[in-house]
């Protein structure tokens, strides 16, 4: 079975890859492109660990096929920091002890960035509902919510 040749933009760089029809974007990122920051927790769209942004829309990369991403812009956790400069969300996650084992952290950060892009001044409840697609088993969510609220305030310049 011949593979498909796909050209996309990932974290600002043009990237070519070959993939089988059945490979998800998550498989492509992890197994073909070795961008392992995006995690697999369930492969059924229920945990959010594989969250990426696809043309500005938050998706579970396990629910998108690699062949669907041609010509699109993909943003993953690897592109979140600007060189050595952490994104405010990343910095606030560290400050607020918003991560423990860390396996859900990349997905949560990508989801939180997407949330703040749509709603720069969310209430606590809006953050809780906005991140309800991302499972975390360690933190009980509280420090994550606080980190997102704090980052939002900083990003608004408040």
């Amino acid at each position: 079975m011949s593979k498909h040749h796909i050209t996309t933009t990932i974290n600002g760089d043009e990237v070519d890859f070959l993939c089988e029809t059945s490979q998800t974007l998550l498989d492509v990122l992890r197994d073909e492109l070795h961008l392992t920051g995006t995690k697999e927790g369930c492969a059924t769209g229920d945990c959010g660990a594989c969250s990426v942004s696809l043309d500005g829309v938050l998706v579970c990369s396990c629910l998108v096929l690699g062949v669907e991403t041609g010509g699109k812009k993909i943003e993953t956790i690897e592109g979140m920091a600007d060189g050595d400069e952490l994104h405010p969300l990343q910095r606030k996650f560290v400050e607020h002890v918003a991560l423990q084992c860390g396996i859900c952290t990349p997905g949560l950060l990508v989801a939180a960035r997407s949330l703040l892009a749509k709603n720069p001044d969310p209430t606590e409840e809006e953050v809780r509902f906005g991140l309800a697609g991302n499972l975390c088993r360690c933190t009980g969510y509280q420090n994550i919510v606080n980190a997102v609220l704090d980052a939002a305030a900083e990003m608004r310049g408040a």
Partner: peptide
């Protein structure tokens, strides 16, 4: 700063499947 935190928030921490 926790010793593991930066690796984890940047996606660089290596878990078994990585």
């Amino acid at each position: 700063e926790r010793p593991d935190a930066i690796e984890k928030v940047t996606g660089r921490a290596r878990y078994a499947a990585d």
